[in-house]
């Protein structure tokens, strides 16, 4: 269970999040949607200690992690993995080495064992043929799947996806969607997905929260979002150019 309570965050004079509160139920695929620059990525980076809030609390499994320092964050980061928007694999390592790195560090495997284990884990995301390729040689969709495999090495309870389908072609995007759904259904992993990809949203989301101008505009199920009367939400989820929505 993850709970955001009254999160406020600003960068210098520019307020980004202004009193944001919501709960993420365990085991669900949870979407955070909103316009570009509304602070969706900023919000989830708080969960892994890449950013710190100005005020408010973040509860993760009955601990308030909002004040954790870098050393205490270590345990949280093993519980809560993150897949970056640009996948952010280590360019100097092959796919297998990328996946093997956390195995080597956290499971204390030797290099050989870690690489063997990494190949197994690449199979899960159907990337085993590319184990010895370097990330810059591969397409965005392939890199994304390797990044997901790498995030899963620590056997996390929660996985954060920062715009997982942005910049992917439609086929790769749907494959990533399927993978996220599978994580939740088969392994019981809670996925928090930051996105403005409406197709993914209506395909796989269990619960959705929409951020608008630094606040939560609406939260609920897919059905709630489809049936809402709110013009701002309506305009966003139907992708209309005109309406009450302000940037």
């Amino acid at each position: 269970m993850i709970q955001f309570k009254n999160i406020v965050k600003s960068f210098g004079p520019k307020p980004v999040l202004n009193d944001v509160s919501f709960d993420v139920p365990t085991g669900s695929v949870f979407f955070i949607i909103g316009a570009s620059g509304v602070g969706k990525s900023v919000l989830i980076k708080h969960l892994v200690g890449l950013l710190y809030r100005d005020s408010g609390e973040i509860w993760l499994d009955d601990e308030d992690i909002s004040k954790f320092d870098e050393s205490r964050m270590g345990a949280i980061r093993k519980k809560c993995a993150m897949v970056f928007q640009h996948s952010t694999l280590f360019d100097s390592m092959t796919c297998a080495e990328n996946v093997a790195l956390p195995l080597r560090k956290h499971k204390h495997l030797s290099l050989r064992e870690a690489l063997a284990e990494a190949r197994e884990r690449l199979k899960v995301v159907r990337m085993q043929e590319f184990a010895d390729r370097y990330p810059p040689e591969m397409g965005d969709g392939m890199r994304k799947r390797v990044a997901i495999a790498r995030a899963l090495t620590v056997d996390p309870k929660y996985v954060l996806f920062d715009e997982p389908t942005t910049s992917l072609d439609p086929v790769s995007a749907r494959r990533v969607d399927a993978l996220i759904r599978e994580l939740s259904d088969k392994l019981g992993v809670t996925s928090i997905v930051v996105s403005h990809d409406l197709t993914s949203l209506f395909a796989i989301a269990d619960r959705i929260v929409m951020l608008y101008r630094g606040k939560v505009r609406l939260q609920g199920s897919r059905a709630d979002f489809k049936s809402t009367e709110d013009g701002v939400v309506q305009q966003f989820i139907h992708g209309r150019a005109t309406g009450p929505f302000e940037l």
């Binding site: 345990a75 993995a81 970056f84 694999l89 280590f90 360019d91 790195l101 560090k105 620590v154």
Partner: peptide, 18 residues
Amino acid sequence: VTEQLDALRVLAIDPISF
């Protein structure tokens, strides 16, 4: 600038010692 350092931290690997 390509966030690879953040990626290390998120994997709970200490960038200083690594």
